[in-house]
Each structure stands twice: as C-alpha cells, then as structure tokens.
Design a protein around this nucleic acid. Structure first.
Length: 752
DNA sequence: AGATGTACCATTTTT
DNA sequence: TGGTACATCT
C-alpha cells in the first residue's frame, strides 16, 4: 500500500489528490494503549497532549498525523508539523512513512525556522528583502554588530558585541521588532546605557541593506507580515487545516504568536509537550505557553499520557519525587507496570577523579556482564565536566563519543568555504567577502579593509564594488591593489562558471583556485587533515542539491552533525543534549551544590531557575531504562582551585524508598580515610598533594567540631565569619567578606 | 602584516 | 586547565 501525492510545488494545491483510500485497517492504531489512542483519535479542535517522559509522545504525534492523512481530512500540503530540531523532524517523517507505507510529498514538516523561512521567501519583498536573502548565523550576527558598535564609538571592552547579540536575541525571541521597543525596555539590561534599542534598529537596517535575515528574523518577519497584511495571513490560515507541534513547552513567544496566528482559522492545533521537561527557559522558552494552552485555545481538549514504558518503578519514583518539589506544574502521575528493577544508586565520592574512576569501573563491570556501551551514557551539567571522563575512558581503553560540540556548518573550514560560495553567488554579500578576503593570506590586512569600508560606505556600494573602484585608483599600495585585483578577477571568473559548470565541481574549483585547499594541505597542525575531510564532505553533500542557493539554505537551516555511530561506545553529553534520548544505564555525576543546581543559574534566575535545574534533574533521571547512578564529590578541582562542595539539594529530594546510598551513610568519615574500608573508587587519588592544597573531607553530617551560636569560624572559601543561627548541621553564618550564607558544619572550622 | 606573548575568563544551545 | 582576544614585538 503506497501513499503518494504528486505535487512539485507545495504551494500549488491544484494537482493534489486525497489518499487512494484502500480498504485496509489503519496501521497507525495498532499497539496503542487507551490514552495514546485517545490522543491520536481526538476529534478536531485544539488539543493539548501532556506527555510525561517515556510515554511514547512522538509516536502519538506521528500517529495522529498519519490518521489525518489516512482519513483524508487534509492533503499533505495542508498540514504543518513543527519541531525544534532537524533530528526530530527527520524522525517524525521517517516514522510517518513507515506507518503509511510510502513516501509523503508536500507535507510542511520541519523546524520552526525552516518552515518560517519557507513562508518568508515567498513574501520577502514585504519586509524589504529579496527572496534570495541570505540567512546569517550567530557568528555573522556578532561580526556585524561589532562593526556597528565601532561605528557608534562604543567601547567594545565594556559593551561586547556578544552581549548586544544576546539582548537582540532576547527581543526577537519575545517577538519584538525595533519599532515595538521603547527606551529602557525591561529586556534591555542597560546595554551601553540604554543604547540597545537604537542599535537594534540600526542592525535591522543593515540586515536589509545586506539582504540578510538572522535566525530570529525568520519568525519575526513572518509576524510583521501577518500583522500588516491580513490577506497574506488569511491565506496561510486557510491553508493549514492541521497544525502539529512537538515539544510545545520549549516554544518562545515569537514561535507561540506565529502558531497562534496560523491556527486561527481551523483551530486544529495539536501541541504535545511536558511542562516538567522545559529546560530552555534561559534561551527564551516560555513554560507559560503550555500552562496557558486551554485559555489561549478555548474549548481545548487535554489528554494526559501517564503510562511510562521506559523506566523501572524505582527510577520513575526517584524522578517523580524530585520533580514534585516544583510549584506550578500541570501535574502528571507517571506509572509503569514493569518489574521493580534496581534502586537508583547514590554514591558519594572523594573527588572528581574518584568519580571518573567509579564510572569507568562500573562501565567495565557492566560490559563484562554483557551490556553494550551504546546503552550507557554519562550526563553532565556543564560540558567541561566531560573531560575528566574522557581522560578516564582513554586510560581504560573504553570507546566513547562526545555528543554536542560545534555543528558541521559552524566549523571554520565549512564557514570559509560557504563564504566563498556566498560571495560568488551574491557579490553584495559583504560579510561573506570580508570573511575570506584574506583567507588564505593575501596581504590584505586591516589597513586595506579600512580603506575598502570607507569607500564602500561613502558611495553606498558593496565591498566588492568598492574594491573594483579602488583597483583603478592609487589609494592602495601597489601590493594590496594587485592582490585585490587578482581576487576580483577570480570571483568574476567563478561567477562566469555558475551557469556552465555543475555546482559541486565549481565549488571544488573555487576552493582549489583560491588557494584555500592548499592552505590546509600545508597546515601542519593536527586538525588540518580533518578539515580537508570536512571540505570533501561538503562537496559531496552538494550533489544532492539542484543549485547553490538551495544548498546554502540547507546548510544554514537543516544540516546537522553526521552521527558518529560506528562501533559500540559510551555516550558523553550534557543533560540538555540528552533530552529525547534513552539508555539502559545512565550515570549522573556532579550532583553538588553550585554545580548542579548551577550557582550562576540561581544567581540570574532565582526560584524559576532552580525549578528549571530541577527539571533538568528530572530529565536526566528519566533517560534511564534500567539503571541510574547519581554521584557527588566532596571535593572538586575546578580549573586550578579545589572546591569543597555539599551534595546537591536534589539528592535530599530523592525519595529514600527508591534509592540506595553508598559512601555517605554506610561508612563513617574515619573509615573513609582507612584504605581498607572503602571501595577502590572512593580512595583519594592524589598522593603528593601539598597539605594546603589537599582536599578536605567534607561528608555531610560528619563535622569534626562542635559549634555554638556566636562562635567565630573559618571557611576555606568564604573566610572568617560568625555563626548567627544553627539548624542541625546547617549553620547560618555572617562572613566578614562573603556576606551571609548557609553552610554545612563540616566545611567550617573554629577560627584560631 | 604577521608572529608571538599575555591577560583573562570559564553554564546550558537550537536554528 | 585551555581557549580566546588583545597588545606588543619583529
């Protein structure tokens, strides 16, 4: 049974036919439980699916999509399915095609940004752009802002472009264009004493001049078009009979407004999400969007998915116990009928090295029992934490992969190559030209570029046009002029080849003739061969596209990292990176106050941030199918300094019935120091440490001293202070330098 | 213009 | 500790 739709232009509904409608049982309903089926078959209208971790939410979303198409409620081109990542979009499409037993064409399925870009290309002129506008990434954005800042004579030491970029991103995430922002806007943060709004406007102006849009613009421009041109909006409202949204809890205001507008005609919007897994508040996601769904879409149906298929009851119990400490949840009670399994293990260790050894030993033990490394993951709060585990795994010879890191198109060589292509395709792309004008080195340095900029600005032309003018005068030194002329000739020649040569070949020619390839061939550094590999990969990827501009869009919006899936390996990643994944065994190291929850998050976001950190803990635990091992170190070397740390408050929040402690309660502090008493991974690793730098043991409740209120004390990190109040082993102390803090007694000694 | 030295800093990250 | 941005030297 094959599902086909013949439609080359997704905007043209003319040739589209509904499904062939063969009389066979719908394949997308088999194996669904009652609550899943309710979500899949819910009648039209707004629908919120509150799906807990491991309840099969992606499956439900896909099945609902299959149902819509199968029962001919809409043609594929009338359905919009949005996700946050390309990976999620790809997976959804693959599952859908499996369910329907054939390919589906014309469907609007992809990321928010890709879908918005698709709309924006058709109406670019309404916001002053051409339909072939380039999409800038963060790197380009920051380079552009740097120029604007220096033009405005703003000290970039005090007010770095990066900070301005963050302010502008915040505004864009909130759906605010420059016209909507007054002086002293609350999201401004006082950048350059209130200049941010002005700079934002200048930046948008410059983007139009460059015929460019940044990621935020893709949505924001759509919003302003919808606001200004109701007929355009109406067109899309009519078109999209069904809208499906994954990970709704992660939508920011701009995405929310975009969706709400598009759903206004048919009201068939189905959002799937889990408020307990909202972990992107810091980049503009609004949990409020999911909490408010029923108000925003009157008459909305709400279906809860609470049956968890992933984890054992102990893991689920531990995770639920932690998340129950959050206020303002929609509330779900996850349950499972799988076998009990092992309690979550909670392990106290001496320091970061001991922790890495513990994890390494455990990995080897599990492996020798027959577990595969693919089914093990180490999930950390901050990416620097992966290093300790990498080192340990290298020592042990355990294969591992680090998930995350720079994306393919963010790599320097890829961005350089793309800049060449961009500059060939669009001569007015100043940012691209600037990027590669002296890569490889051509003797075109700061001085030349300054002259180029002045000339370009004075006559209002692009840098390349200005360069052409300058080559005919003697404003530049002969050497620079010749180099520039040569480069311009190259570009003219390449541009001439655009129509005749096929594009993968052309890119290869450009990279060879510009000297870019040989630059890396001559580079002796260790990563040069890898970069050449990446360039080859880029050219290979080109072959799948009809033209260069299609490819450029793909690269900036769709291309993700090639999955490194050769061989059996342990995965190392951040908790954020682990969302949506699952493993038999999950290690959760570094559960210490200040690291997790991260102090910086708490400083910046207070209670809301603490709750987001707690959701991160919940996400981490619920990644595990069979086994979760949480650990915390008493001492940690962060950069060059030893820090004693208290166990994370999330450890206390783990329900005792579902955990098994090792190291803290079973052994006393004195026993820990006895080499025979503790398991190998508990022993201090450092033998030759000077006494003053050696970590001090800091087990909870194992204070070496008895204190009274009013005692003068000393703390390794905070210095001298006086005890104001005592609550068991918690001391409330007024430090002379560090202010008032609550500290565990074990970290404190009497002042001498 | 390019190389070399130095001070500084250090969540989380998709598009 | 390691990467980066800027200053200074050749």
């Amino acid at each position: 049974m094959v599902y086909i739709e013949h439609m080359s232009d997704p905007f043209d509904l003319g040739g589209a036919e509904p499904l062939p409608g063969e009389p066979a049982p719908p394949p997308y309903l088999s194996g669904l439980n009652g609550e899943q089926r309710a979500a899949v078959e819910a009648t039209d209208g707004p629908l919120l699916v509150l799906a807990g971790a491991g309840t099969g939410k992606t499956r439900v979303l896909t099945s609902r999509l299959a149902n819509i198409l199968w029962s001919q409620k809409a043609w594929p081109s009338q359905v919009l399915a949005v996700t946050f990542t390309n990976k999620a979009a790809r997976e959804m499409r693959e599952r859908l095609e499996t369910l329907l037993g054939g390919t589906v064409e014309g469907l609007w399925i992809g990321t928010f940004h890709a879908m918005a870009a698709r709309i924006l290309r058709r109406h670019a002129e309404l916001v002053g752009l051409k339909s072939d506008f380039t999409i800038l990434d963060t790197d380009d954005q920051i380079r552009l802002l740097k120029q604007l800042l220096s033009a405005a004579n703003i000290d970039d030491k005090r007010w770095p472009a990066r900070a301005l970029s963050a302010v502008i991103d915040r505004w864009k995430n909130a759906g605010l264009s420059p016209q909507q922002i007054g002086q002293g806007h609350p999201l401004d943060n006082g950048f350059a004493n209130g200049k941010a709004a002005e700079l934002y406007a200048a930046y948008q102006q410059r983007l139009v001049e460059l015929n460019a849009a940044d990621f935020g613009d893709l949505l924001l421009h759509c919003l302003s078009i919808f606001a200004k041109y109701p007929d355009v909006l109406k067109d899309y409202q009519e078109r999209f009979r069904y809208i499906l949204v994954d990970e709704y809890q992660d939508t920011n205001v701009a995405q929310y407004l975009w969706l709400r507008l598009l759903a206004q005609s048919h009201h068939n919007i189905c959002c799937v999400g889990d408020d307990d897994q909202s972990i992107y508040g810091w980049r503009g996601a609004e949990v409020g969007n999911i909490l408010r769904f029923e108000k925003d879409f009157p008459g909305a149906a709400v279906v809860r998915l609470e049956r968890n298929y992933r984890s054992t009851p102990h893991i689920l119990g531990a995770a639920s116990g932690v998340i129950a400490h959050n206020q303002g949840r929609l509330g779900k009670t996850l349950w499972t009928d799988t076998n009990e399994g092992e309690p979550v293990q909670v392990r106290a260790v001496w320091d970061g090295d001991a922790e890495a050894r513990m994890v390494g030993d455990e990995v080897e033990a599990l492996q020798s029992k027959g577990d595969t490394l693919d089914e093990m993951a180490v999930l950390v709060r901050a990416s620097f934490q992966t290093r300790a585990f990498e080192e340990r795994f290298i020592t042990l010879g355990v294969p591992y992969r680090v998930i995350g890191g720079p994306r393919f198109y963010e790599r320097r060589e890829i961005r350089d190559a793309l800049a060449y292509v961009r500059a060939v395709v669009s001569p007015a792309d100043d940012l691209a030209f600037e990027r590669i004008v002296n890569v490889p080195k051509r003797g075109l340095g700061d001085a030349t570029m300054r002259t180029l900029h002045t000339t370009a600005r004075a006559s209002g032309v692009s840098l390349m046009a200005a360069a052409q003018v300058l080559c005919e005068t003697d404003d530049l030194r002969a050497q620079a002029r010749n180099a520039l002329q040569r480069l311009l000739n190259d570009f003219a020649r390449w541009r001439g080849l655009l129509s005749t040569m096929n594009h993968p070949e052309l890119v290869e020619v450009i990279l060879d003739e510009s000297g870019y390839t040989s630059m890396w061939q001559q580079d002796k550094s260790a990563d040069a061969p890898g970069r050449l590999e990446n360039l080859k990969e880029l050219i290979q990827a080109l072959e799948e596209f009809e033209n260069l501009s299609g490819f450029l869009e793909h690269v900036s919006l769709v291309m993700d990292n090639a999955a490194n899936d050769d061989g059996d390996m342990v995965s190392l990643m951040t908790l954020h990176g682990a969302k949506g994944l699952e493993f038999d065994t999950v290690f959760l190291p570094g559960w210490e106050e200040e690291l997790f929850p991260h102090q910086r998050a708490l400083d910046e976001g207070g209670l809301a941030a603490l709750e987001e950190e707690r959701r991160l803990a919940y996400v981490g635990l619920t990644r595990a199918r069979k086994r979760a091992i949480v650990s915390y170190a008493a001492n940690r070397r962060i950069f060059d300094r030893w820090v004693n740390s208290a166990p994370s408050r999330f450890i206390e929040e783990l329900p005792e019935d579902h955990i098994e402690r090792e190291g803290e309660t079973g052994l006393s502090a004195t026993e820990w120091h006895d080499p025979g008493a503790a398991p190998a991974w508990l022993k201090p690793a450092h033998r030759g440490i000077r006494e003053d730098r050696a970590p001090r043991w800091a087990a909870r409740g194992q204070a070496d001293h008895v204190f009274d209120e009013g005692d003068r004390i000393f703390h390794q990190k905070f210095g001298y202070g006086r005890i104001l109040e005592m609550d068991g082993d918690k001391l409330y102390i007024a430090f002379e330098k560090a202010g008032d803090k609550t500290v565990l007694a074990s970290f404190v000694e009497p002042a001498k």
